[in-house]
């Protein structure tokens, strides 16, 4: 849109800098794709094909120890000098748009390690709870040579379903007392798990949770996911967890797995949906926004039904 200033590199230069490992270029690039503007799209196009890094989603209810587990997993991979990228997604307030992104507090052990790149993303009201730019952000970390790329989301509501699409491996983290297993089943949390982790397993109730999970996952049609007990604060169980994830990465390497196909589909659909919705509501003359206000008044005072209002709005679109 705006013509590039002399200070700004071309998308091709920017992409080359990211591939060459320039961390500032990566950080700036993440900002561009997070904003989903024309500059971000140009950068992604210049970057070309990516997708060799194993993407690991980590989700679960608040307080289960996700950030601490991520930090411990990072340490497990750093022991072999693997460069690890982390995307930590936290919700934006639907009212102010603000967000408090606090996941770095649990990851301070890696604060001055060049081989670890941590970026906090606010969900910015994205459908499904996952930050809209997270697919693109993962691509950038991938292109910069980070493998694996860990994506952490708070598991309340739909976010975990989205993450299972964005990730090659989804780890669901639970802790004794972090909500019973039936609730987990309701939310679909257990269905998306490739690996189940019972963290804080030195606490009372851990064995009961493992047993309950075992019987719950046996009911699934698909292959039951392995269950790993960890104490992330002490690094216990991390070697086993890492080995499981690496095993999945090796199995998936080089193949266009069903998972990646589904991810591409979901990503394209989400982008199309977003663009169509933007185009619809932000029509240049603002007519739709006004029509919405009028329709809302009609529905609120009972003179029209919501269904009629929808039909009228959509009728206007095709005209």
């Amino acid at each position: 849109m705006d013509s590039p200033s002399p200070k700004q590199p071309s998308p091709e230069q920017h992409a080359a800098a990211i591939r060459a490992g320039d961390r500032r270029a990566l950080a700036r690039g993440l900002t561009l794709v997070e904003n989903e503007g024309a500059d971000g799209a140009a950068l992604l196009a210049a970057l070309g094909s990516v997708g060799s890094a194993h993407r690991v989603g980590i989700t679960g209810p608040p307080g289960a120890g996700k950030s601490t587990l991520v930090s411990a997993l990072v340490a497990a991979w750093r022991a072999d000098s693997r460069d690890v990228g982390v995307l930590a997604v936290d919700p934006s307030s639907p009212f102010t748009g603000g967000a408090l992104l606090g996941d770095r507090i649990r990851m301070l052990a890696h604060a001055d390690d060049e081989g670890v790149f941590i970026r906090s993303l606010a969900s910015r009201g994205a459908f499904g709870g996952l930050a809209a730019g997270v697919y693109d952000a993962a691509d950038l970390l991938d292109a910069a040579g980070f493998d694996p790329v860990l994506i952490e989301t708070v598991g309340v509501g739909q976010a975990e379903i989205e993450i299972s699409r964005a990730a090659d491996t989804t780890i669901v983290v639970l802790a004794p007392g972090s909500g019973d297993v039936v609730q987990g089943m309701k939310a679909g949390l257990l269905e998306i798990a490739d690996v189940l982790v019972v963290n804080q397993s030195d606490r009372e109730g851990a064995d009961a949770l493992v047993a309950a999970l075992q019987s719950a996952v046996e009911l699934r049609d698909a292959v039951a996911p392995p269950i790993v007990k960890t104490v992330a604060t002490r690094g216990e169980g991390l070697a086993e967890l890492r080995a499981l994830v690496d095993g999945r990465a090796a199995a998936a390497a080089g193949e266009l797995t069903a998972r990646r196909l589904a991810r591409a589909r979901a990503r394209i659909r989400a982008a199309v949906d977003r663009r169509r919705a933007d185009a619809f509501w932000n029509a240049a003359d603002g007519a739709q926004a006004q029509a919405l206000s009028e329709a809302a008044r009609g529905v609120a005072d009972g003179s029209t039904s919501a269904a009629e209002a929808v039909a009228r709005l959509l009728g206007g679109e095709s005209a």
Binding site: R23, I105, L108, A111, S120, A122
Partner: peptide
């Protein structure tokens, strides 16, 4: 946050090196 900012909170006992490294990654 309530003013609409995205706030990255890194907590206690940060060295200048840690602070700047985080600020650069978070842009």
């Amino acid at each position: 946050r309530d003013a609409g900012f995205e706030v990255i909170y890194t907590g206690l006992r940060q060295t200048p090196e840690m602070i700047v490294a985080a600020a650069l990654q978070e842009d």
